[in-house]
Amino acid sequence: LELTLRVGDKTWHFKDVDEEFVRHLEELLKRGAHEREIEEIIREWLR
C-alpha cells in the first residue's frame, strides 16, 4: 500500500505501508486525534 497523509501543514508519503498501521491511523482519525498524537505515531512507525 502507498499512503499520503496530510496533517496540519505537514505531508507524508509512505510506500509499502503495513495495513495494520493504516487501520491504526484510521482509528486515531475517527476519534479525533490531535495533530501531535498523529505525528508521534508516525515517528514511532518510522523507527
Rank of each mutant, 00 (worst) to 15 (best):
R36C: 04
R23E: 05
A33M: 11
E44N: 11
E26L: 14
E2S: 11
I41C: 04
H24Y: 14
L28Y: 06
R43I: 13
E27Q: 11
R23T: 07
H34L: 09
F14G: 00
E35K: 05
V7R: 00
R43P: 02
W12A: 00
K15V: 10
W45L: 07
E26Q: 14
G8R: 01
V22D: 01
I41H: 10
L28R: 08
E35Q: 13
G8L: 02
E2V: 04
V7H: 02
H34G: 13
R47S: 12
E44A: 11
R36H: 14
F21M: 04
D16C: 09
F14V: 03
E37F: 09
H34C: 03
E44M: 07
W45C: 06
L29P: 01
H24V: 11
R47V: 14
L46N: 06
L29M: 15
D18K: 06
D18F: 03
F14C: 02
E2F: 06
E20Q: 13
L5M: 06
R6L: 10
K15D: 06
R43G: 10
H24F: 12
H13D: 02
L3Q: 03
I42F: 07
R23D: 05
W45N: 06
H13W: 06
E2N: 15
L46G: 06
G32Q: 05
L5E: 00
T4P: 02
F14S: 00
W12N: 00
D18H: 09
K30E: 08
G32H: 07
I38L: 09
A33D: 05
H13Y: 15
G32D: 05
L29N: 04
E19M: 11
F21P: 00
R47L: 10
V7N: 02
E2P: 02
E26M: 15
T11H: 15
A33P: 04
E40W: 08
L5D: 00
L28S: 06
K15M: 09
L46A: 07
K15W: 06
E26P: 01
K10I: 15
T11W: 07
R23G: 07
L1E: 14
E35H: 11
G32K: 05
E26H: 13
W12S: 00
D16T: 13
K30L: 11
D9F: 01
D9H: 04
W45A: 06
T4G: 02
H24P: 01
E44G: 08
K15Y: 12
H34V: 08
R36W: 14
L5V: 15
R23M: 09
E27D: 12
R6Q: 15
I41D: 04
D16F: 13
R43K: 15
I41P: 00
E20M: 11
I42N: 01
L46P: 05
I42K: 00
V17L: 03
W12D: 00
E26A: 10
L3I: 15
R31H: 12
E39M: 09
K15N: 09
L5G: 00
R23S: 07
L5H: 01
E40I: 09
W45F: 14
V22A: 03
V7E: 01
F21N: 02
E20S: 13
H13M: 04
L1W: 13
K15Q: 10
E20D: 13
T4W: 08
F21A: 04
D9N: 08
L3Y: 07
G32S: 06
D18M: 02
E27K: 12
R43T: 13
G32N: 07
I42R: 00
L5P: 00
D18R: 03
R47E: 12
E39T: 11
L3H: 08
E2Y: 07
L1C: 12
R36S: 15
E20R: 09
I38C: 05
R43D: 14
L46I: 13
E19D: 06
G8H: 02
K30F: 11
L1V: 06
H34N: 15
H24R: 10
R31Y: 10
G32L: 04
L29K: 04
L29Y: 05
K15R: 10
W45P: 01
R6P: 02
